[in-house]
Computed example of a mutant assay.
Amino acid sequence: MGIQFKTRTFKELSVEELYQILQLRSEVFVVEQNCVYQDIDGKDQKAIHIIGEYDNKVVAYTRIFKPGDYFENASIGRVVIDANYRDRKWGHDLIRESVTAIARHFGESPITISAQLYLQKFYESHGFVVVGETYLEDGIPHIEMLRN
């Protein structure tokens, strides 16, 4: 059996789901990437959460925002895959699921992301194009990308 996706508003998240999401984000963004930053940023309450589960464990995650809540356009953020499952290429499924969820919840919309620079080609494979210069966010090179 493969990865299973579910979509939740903040209020629909169970305590267990929220715990696993925050644990995964911390494991990857703080520990693995050695980046001290404020992950709990007050935006989760506005987001719709895309959760990828395998064997009852959260192994993939994004949060999506309607236009105007984060960027002018709809957006996808906190894209993360558990390191133990990256060889399964579920990141591609996660992005497709996130793009579909944006269309389902907010209608057809351009999507803006703040992508880590090393993932530029990954996002280009999903129709995103670079629209800005490289910049540092929490000490990590990022690039703004857009999908129309």
Rank of each mutant, 00 (worst) to 15 (best):
P110I: 15
R78F: 05
E108I: 06
I40D: 06
T9Y: 00
L146R: 10
E12S: 12
N84G: 06
A115G: 15
R96F: 13
I140T: 03
V30N: 09
T100I: 01
R147V: 13
G127M: 00
R78P: 08
V30Q: 03
I76Q: 11
G91A: 06
R63I: 07
A83P: 13
I95Y: 07
Q4T: 12
R63A: 10
I95C: 04
R63P: 05
L136I: 08
I50G: 12
R86T: 01
Q38D: 15
Q20I: 04
E97C: 14
V99C: 15
S98N: 08
A74C: 04
A47E: 04
F5R: 07
G42T: 09
D87K: 15
N148F: 11
E133Q: 14
V15C: 02
R63L: 10
Q116A: 03
R96E: 15
F29H: 13
L146C: 11
H126S: 04
T62R: 02
I51M: 05
N148W: 07
N56C: 03
R147Y: 11
R104M: 08
I48F: 11
D44N: 11
D44H: 12
I113Q: 15
S125C: 03
G77T: 10
D69C: 01
F122G: 06
P141R: 06
G2F: 03
S125Y: 00
Y123D: 11
Y19L: 12
I113E: 15
L136V: 10
V129P: 00
L18D: 02
Q116D: 06
V28M: 07
